[in-house]
Amino acid sequence: MQVAIASGKGGVGKSTITASLLYFLKDRYKLIAVDADAEAPNLGLLLGVEEWEEEREHIGAKVAKINTETCVRCGICYERCPYESIYIDEDGNYIVNELTCEGCNVCGLVCPVPGTITLEQARSGVIRKATTKYGFPIISAQLDVGRPESGKLVTEEKEWAKKLMDELNLEHMIVDSAAGIGCQVIASIGGADLTILIAEPTPASLSDVQRAYKVVQHFRQPAYLIINKADLNPGFTALREWAEAEGIPVIGEVPYDRAIPKSMAMLKPVVEAFPDSPASKALKEIAERIAEEILG
C-alpha cells in the first residue's frame, strides 16, 4: 500500500509522528519512506541518515538568458517582466536573475531582436536515496532555491520508490507530505491508497486540515485522523465534531509531551529516545491500530 501523511498546516507534528510510526512498523512490514517535503526535507534527520548513497539531478525548470552581444538595450524586457527578474548591471547590460525568473518567456516575446532572449533548461533540485539506521530505505528531495516544479520532484521521488519496492520486494510506502495543499501535497496524495491526516485542536489547524481533506476527496481516497497535542486545548471540540460529521475515523490522540522536542534535538524518534513517555505510549497504540485496521 501507499500511505500519505498530510496535515494542511505546518508545525502540527507530521514528520515527528511519521518517524515514530515508521519506527514501530519497520519490524512488522518491509517499508520504504518518502520525504515529500522538497522545500524543507527533514525526515531523514530523524531516521539517522548521515549521508546519501545516490543522488539524481532533476532538470526541468526553464530560465531566460539574454545575449548581451545582440541586445540593443531597449529596455522593453526590463519593463514587461511580470516578476521583475531583469536588472541592469554596472556595464549597462540587461541581465536575468535566475533565482526569480519563472521561465514565462514574456521577455522573449516582447524582445524586438529575434534570438536575443532564449529559454534554457535549469536544475530544479536533486532526488536522493539512503538507507536509514533502522534498515529500511528512504527517498528524499531538495528543491533548489527559487526553482519551481516541487510537485514534479515529489512525483519522481515516488516513481523511484515504486521501482525500489519491486526490486526489494517491499510492502508499503509511507509518504510524509509537505504542509499546505500545493503541488507537493497534491503529488503526495495522488496515487496513494489512503491518507492519514494530522491535526491539533486549534481553529487554524482545523481550517487547514479541512482544506487538505478536500484534496483527499478529489482523489476519492479514504482518510483517517490523528489528533496531536490533543490535551493542548481541551475545550475545543470542533475538530472531533468535524471528523465525525465527515465520517473520518480518529485512530488516536497524542498528548502534548516535552519529550518530543528533546528527542528532536537528539535526532531520534521520540518512541526510541523516550519509549515510556506519554506521547510514545500513545504512538505505539496508534501504530498497532494502523497495523491491524489499515495495513492488515
Score class of each variant (00 low, 15 high):
L206S: 09
L206E: 05
S207Y: 06
D208Q: 07
D208H: 06
D208K: 03
V209W: 02
V209H: 06
Q210K: 15
Q210F: 00
R211I: 01
A212K: 07
A212Y: 04
A212G: 03
Y213I: 03
Y213G: 01
K214W: 00
K214L: 12
K214D: 11
K214G: 02
V215P: 00
V215I: 13
V216D: 05
V216I: 10
V216E: 06
V216A: 12
V216P: 00
Q217M: 09
H218W: 03
H218I: 05
F219W: 10
F219G: 09
F219I: 11
R220L: 13
R220Q: 14
Q221R: 14
Q221L: 15
P222N: 04
P222G: 09
A223L: 13
A223K: 09
Y224D: 06
Y224S: 07
L225F: 03
I226H: 03
I226L: 02
I226G: 02
I227P: 02
N228Q: 04
K229C: 06
A230H: 12
A230G: 08
D231W: 06
L232T: 12
N233P: 04
N233R: 04
P234F: 10
P234C: 12
P234Q: 11
G235P: 10
F236N: 12
T237A: 14
T237M: 05
A238D: 13
L239S: 09
L239V: 10
R240G: 02
W242D: 12
A243V: 03
A243H: 07
A243S: 11
E244N: 15
A245D: 13
E246Y: 04
E246V: 00
E246N: 13
E246A: 14
E246F: 03
G247L: 06
G247V: 09
P249C: 08
P249T: 01
P249A: 00
P249G: 06
V250K: 04
V250L: 15
V250R: 08
V250D: 14
I251D: 09
I251H: 14
G252P: 09
G252I: 05
G252W: 04
E253R: 08
E253N: 05
P255Y: 00
Y256F: 15
Y256R: 15
Y256H: 15
Y256D: 11
D257G: 08
D257R: 10
D257H: 11
